[in-house]
Design a protein around this nucleic acid. Structure first.
Lengths: 225, 225
DNA sequence: CAATAAACTTACTGTCGAGTAGGTACGGCT
DNA sequence: AGCCGTACCTACTCGACAGTAAGTTTATTG
């Protein structure tokens, strides 16, 4: 499990800054994902990267800076992976499908990334929470736009305004379900990405469909306590 | 915001162990929920409880012990709150509705509890993760049982076996959505518990309904890369 | 072949926080 | 009254870890 990068030759080769920075970030993501931000030590990051501690401070700054750099890099990778697959030309359900699929495939191939992005980043009150909320907000907006655009084409077009409002919280639930499903996956890796994505679509798209047809579930009428 | 419990009289009254333990747990839940496990200090817990540090060690043991005690207490409170409302005699959708509603109402009234139970407990590799997984597992089993029982009464009874399997991962998605919605609520407290519960039911119950009618969403046939 | 800059190191400082030693004060009981 | 147990405290130890000072090696370029 030791990720020391130098060859067995023992002599640490001199590498350009760019390469070392990547190695440091790789190590940091791995260490943060295992221990969480607070419990992770810079010494362990430096050991995992096969480098000494002052290099990290020289290249990436403080521990917080390092963590922020991890989040930014992994967030970019995730967003690019999704954007590559959910092309805007497709019908709404297919856009959603490919987006969801790309999401789960990325998580499957980069569980550390997800752990850092979601679990660790949200544990903070600091500037990371903001960064993390950005991801969620973007995702929610994206999904909401898909719902609303789909609702616009529905035969019940008079529900447009209601769908707008309901669509957004529906999107929040959907994104939330995706996040939690991804969390759950970290602990239960037996399922495939495709499977998870299909399950997701089954719940979600059905909910959308009923919404567009104006079928809503209503709580039983009863005296509130 | 200071929760110092003693009166302004200055003299700390002598209280029985039972009472102090409750005060310490209250303080600990509050502090852990704000800072997370690692960043929380025993000094802050003791200050918040209005008591000195050795009392905590004498009554509740180490920091880990204290944290575990918090989780256990809050978990019990949550489960009791739900069991009180989701009576087994009701039809499946109403059981689910009251369970979900009780869940959100509890979270609304005890945001600290949820923060400790979900956010902080899952950040660990240790024995807390196990404790936390127990909550999730129980919830998933409960929901899955509801789905399957509902499916049994559907006119498409031949899908029973398939529903069994699909029902469980559907339940996982539902519980996940609930967890994430609760997380999201911590940051967006403007909605009411009832509202959230209704949104939840709308997505979820629609998904169940379609499942029971055998309507499934299928991905577009295409060459996989 | 200097000389310069960048890659890289060892070995330290200072702080913060978990856990404890060793008490004092207060109430109940005979 | 005087004893005992329990509630409660101040003031410490000790280890872990973020961050740094000050130096050493290597590639490159004039």
């Amino acid at each position: 499990m030791e990720l020391v990068n130098e060859e067995a030759s023992g002599r640490p080769k001199r590498l350009p800054r760019e390469v070392r920075e990547r190695q440091i970030l790789d190590a940091a993501v791995s260490v943060f994902s295992v221990h969480g931000y607070h419990a992770a030590s810079m010494d362990e990051v430096s050991a995992t990267a096969g480098i000494s501690k002052p290099m990290i401070y020289s290249y990436l700054g403080s521990k917080e800076d390092l963590f922020a750099a991890c989040i930014r890099r992994e967030l970019d990778r995730l967003l690019v992976a999704i954007a590559d697959r959910a092309k805007p030309g497709l019908p709404a359900d297919q856009q959603l499908w490919y987006g969801v699929l790309a999401f789960f495939e990325f998580i499957g191939a980069n569980k550390d990334s997800w752990s850092v992005l979601h679990r660790q980043a949200s544990e903070h009150g600091g500037p990371f929470a903001a960064e993390h909320r950005l991801l969620r907000t973007r995702a929610i907006e994206l999904v909401a736009a898909l719902v609303i655009s789909a609702a616009g084409r529905s035969e019940h077009s008079e529900i447009g305004a209601a769908a707008q409002r309901t669509g957004e919280s529906l999107a929040a639930a959907v994104v939330g379900a995706g996040e939690s499903l991804a969390d759950w996956w970290l602990d239960n890796p037996q399922e495939s990405a495709r499977h998870l994505a299909e399950r997701m679509m089954n719940v979600v798209w059905a909910g959308f469909g009923n919404l567009m047809d104006g079928k809503v579930w209503a709580p039983p009428p009863e005296a509130d306590e």
